[in-house]
Structure formats: structure tokens, C-alpha cells
Write a protein that binds this DNA or RNA. Structure first.
Length: 296
DNA sequence: AGTGGCTCCTGGCGGC
DNA sequence: TGCCGCCAGGAGCCAC
């Protein structure tokens, strides 16, 4: 699932190829890709030049000056520069001049597209939290966000209204690196642990970008290339496998409805209410561990 | 404030 | 081998 590092990888790959080209066509094969009509998408985008490719959290945007064409890939969205052999129709495609095409593929069809006038961008992104790789994301800022919150750290990290761009993979990997239990209440994190959490998040996302993303599911860059961060995962989808640091089997629980992976020894349940520990659902049955074959 | 449940959607899996 | 049913998961929504 494309999270901040995957979207940033796409942004960096697309920018040199699309900036400076004009949008000449929009073809929609699946009208559920946008709440806006095809006519409106066309009217707002065609004839405009790509000034830049932007990213906000997990959103990617073609900056067309007066209008941004904003794309969220959600679970399985892919932006590809060519149509893979034997692939079925994309949900949408864009044509540019000088000639170039961009195809939006999306098996599970959760992804969405919006053409947003520049004046409305602040409103469009109003609910988005801080960019974790921006100068605004300081330890002090993080402490302010954590203060008073009772929700588990895992749920806190996934909340796009606090910090933008973190999804299930990078949340689990960040908490492992910070030696913090996913069920720990956000508000109980002190200065020292907040520093660790901050540094772990920045480090994990930066490493993700440096490795061109995590191709554990369907993620590929616009040229179809996989990332390599999946080779560096410490906990995500490693249920039952030995912790790379201490050898303890990685555990899976469900936190706020999300599968959550952690090392029970490297991430001890300090400041985790025993009630919370009990109510977190353990990994469901055989599916997760049968012969160690399944990774969920 | 926080959570659980539901929705969207489909491929891939377990179970039989 | 084949079919059924479950399930993940980002985000928005509603109920509690």
C-alpha cells in the first residue's frame, strides 16, 4: 500500500518526465475514480502545463498552476508510464504533449482523483497533519501532538490528521525502531521516548525513500520497478519469525482494527494498561502462523 | 476522545 | 481440482 515513501518515490520518478509537458487529454475508463464528471476533470486540466509534481502525505498531485490534479492511490493504485502487456484497462489515463501517457491502474479501485482549483487547496488539505519530513516536524511538535492522548501509539501514527503519510507498514517499523509498544497510550510518552519516536519515524521514512519504497504488496514505481525496503523490514508481516535483534518471535495483534506487528522483547509493554493488553486481539488462528508460511 | 463496525473492492488464500 | 467464504486495508462515516 503506497505510503509516504512510495508516493514520494513516484513523485521523484515522474517529475523529470512530466514537468513542462501540457495535459492534452483525460480518459476515464471507470467513472468511480472521481466524484467529478469526466467533463469537469477535462475542463479543469486539459491545456494546462505541469509546473511540478507535489506530494502531501499520501496524496500525489500534478501541479498545473491554477489547478492541482490530486491523486490518492489508497491500497493498490499504480501510476504507470506504459500499459503492461496483458493488463486490463486502467481506471484513467492522462495524455501529455510532447507525447507521453500516464496510466492509473488500481485493482481494488479504492483510489480517487480530484481536480482542485488552487484557491481551494488549503481547504482540500485542511485536515492533514504535519509532514513528518518537514522542518516543522520537531520533537517539540511531536510532544504537542502526543500530549493528553489516550489512544495507542499505533492508532496515533496512522491518524492522518496528526502526522500525514504514515500507514501500516511504516507505523509498525517506526515503533520497532523506537522500542515502543504499539498499545502504549500516546500521552504517556515522555521526553526521551518522544525523541526516540521522532527519530525513528524520520529514519524509517527516509530509509523507505532511499530504498525506493516497500514492494510487499503491489507497489511499483512508474516504470514498473519494485522498491527494496521490504528486505529491511523488522516486524511488518514477519509474524512468528525471529526478531532480527533478539530472536524473539514477532507477534501480531489487532490495534484499532489494523494488523500490528511487534517484537514483545524489544518493545516491552511499559506503560501499557493490562486491560489494553488483554483487549487487543491476538493474531487470528492458523492463518497467521501455519508452518510459518503465511506472513500475515 | 476514542473505538468498533461498516463501506468501498478484489485477489488470494484456507478449508473442505 | 474446484468452489465457497473470509480477509486485508486507507479513509470516511456513523453509533456508542
Amino acid at each position: 500500500m503506497p505510503e509516504l515513501p512510495e508516493v514520494e518515490t513516484i513523485r521523484r520518478r515522474l517529475a523529470p518526465l512530466l514537468v513542462g509537458r501540457d495535459v492534452t487529454g483525460v480518459t476515464v475508463y471507470d467513472e468511480t475514480v472521481s466524484d467529478q464528471s469526466v467533463a469537469e476533470l477535462r475542463r479543469l486540466t486539459t491545456g494546462r502545463r505541469v509546473e511540478a509534481i507535489q506530494r502531501r502525505g499520501k496524496y500525489l498531485a500534478l501541479d498545473l498552476g491554477d489547478v492541482w490534479l490530486v491523486i490518492h492511490l489508497r491500497m493498490t493504485g499504480q501510476l504507470l508510464l506504459s500499459r503492461p502487456e496483458g493488463a486490463r484497462l486502467p481506471r484513467m489515463s492522462l495524455a501529455f504533449a510532447p507525447p507521453r501517457d500516464l496510466f492509473f491502474y488500481d485493482t481494488r479501485r479504492f483510489g480517487r482523483v480530484w481536480a482542485v482549483r488552487q484557491a481551494r487547496l488549503p481547504e482540500f488539505f485542511a485536515e492533514m497533519g504535519v509532514e513528518p519530513l518537514s522542518p516543522e516536524f520537531t520533537v517539540a511538535a511531536l510532544r504537542g501532538l502526543l500530549a493528553g492522548r489516550r489512544q495507542p501509539l499505533k492508532a496515533f501514527l496512522l491518524d492522518q490528521r496528526r502526522i500525514a503519510g504514515v500507514g501500516n507498514i511504516y507505523a509498525d517499523e517506526t515503533l520497532f525502531r523506537a522500542h515502543l509498544h504499539p498499545l502504549r497510550a500516546a500521552g504517556t510518552v515522555g521526553a526521551r521516548s518522544a525523541q526516540h519516536l521522532h527519530d525513528a519515524l524520520v529514519e524509517t521514512l527516509t530509509l523507505g525513500i532511499a530504498n525506493a519504497g516497500t514492494s510487499v504488496d503491489t507497489f511499483v514505481d512508474p516504470e514498473g520497478a519494485s522498491g527494496s525496503f521490504q528486505e529491511m523490514l523488522n516486524v511488518y508481516q514477519r509474524t512468528g519469525q525471529p526478531c532480527r535483534v533478539c530472536g524473539t518471535p514477532i507477534e501480531r495483534i489487532v490495534v484499532s482494527g489494523r494488523s500490528t506487528h511487534f517484537c514483545p522483547r524489544c518493545q516491552p509493554p511499559r506503560h501499557v494498561a493490562s486491560r489494553a493488553r488483554r483487549s487487543s486481539r491476538p493474531a487470528t488462528s492458523a492463518r497467521s502462523t501455519v508452518g510459518g508460511l503465511r506472513r500475515r
